[in-house]
């Protein structure tokens, strides 16, 4: 790893750990196996969003050419959001691509991703299914995003979460894995029949 990348990551690691956001446990950064190339970030779901109360783990890879190229970041925690792939966790965020600038840091990256959770950009989607739901049936999107946050990321339970859990359980009883069940139900706006058909077809 280039020495500049090492120097920078060391300093940014410190910067995140001592930041006021870390103090309020909004963001967190940890090393994976004492290796400055591979880090694990953590962000809290912002208030007044479906993600409130949930904690999302981010997988961060530092390229040798850092900070001349951006870090490679994706969600390790499952999330339902138009700009994040519900399958792979890939993030569609300009600063992680062509809008990267060398003065940005891991702290600003974590905060930008947190801000993305509060303001989705459905016209520049990473996950077309989620984006379509976001635009056409915003209430179902809200409900689904909140359920995913609760189911996968320790978010606060909602009034309808018991109902949705029941639907997931009914699919699981048919021998379907719970992750596949949640995905299929979310994809088909919680219509259990269509979801089951899609899995067995």
């Amino acid at each position: 790893m280039a020495s500049l990348a090492i120097q920078r990551v060391k300093r940014e690691f410190k910067e995140v750990v001592t930041s006021s956001e870390a103090e309020n446990s909004q963001i967190k950064l940890e090393m994976v196996a004492e290796n400055l190339k591979h880090l694990q970030g953590e962000i809290k779901g912002p208030p007044d969003t479906p993600f409130e109360g949930a904690t999302f783990i981010l997988d961060i890879l530092i390229p040798d050419s850092y900070p001349f190229n951006p870090p490679k970041v994706k969600f390790a925690t499952k999330i339902w959001h138009p700009n994040i792939s519900s399958a792979t966790g890939a993030i569609c965020l300009d600063i992680l691509k062509d809008q990267w600038a060398a003065a940005m840091t891991l702290r600003t990256v974590l905060l930008s991703i947190q801000a993305l959770l509060a303001s989705a950009e459905p016209d520049d989607p990473q996950d077309a299914v989620v984006a379509k739901q976001y635009k056409e049936t915003p209430e179902i999107y809200h409900m689904t995003a909140k359920f995913w946050a609760e189911f996968f990321a320790g978010g606060n339970p909602s009034s309808y979460s018991a109902d949705l859990r029941q639907k997931v359980k009914s699919l699981c009883d048919m021998g379907i894995q719970s992750l596949d069940a949640v995905r299929a139900l979310s994809h088909y706006n919680w219509d259990a029949t269509t979801a089951v058909e899609s899995i067995f077809s």
Binding site: L4, S65, F68, N69, A101, A102, A103
Partner: peptide, 17 residues
């Protein structure tokens, strides 16, 4: 050295773009 290396990647100011 830092800015010359950056300009090999992008022709924007690394701070204000």
């Amino acid at each position: 050295l830092c800015i010359s290396e950056w300009l090999r990647h992008k022709n924007v100011c690394p701070i204000d773009r």
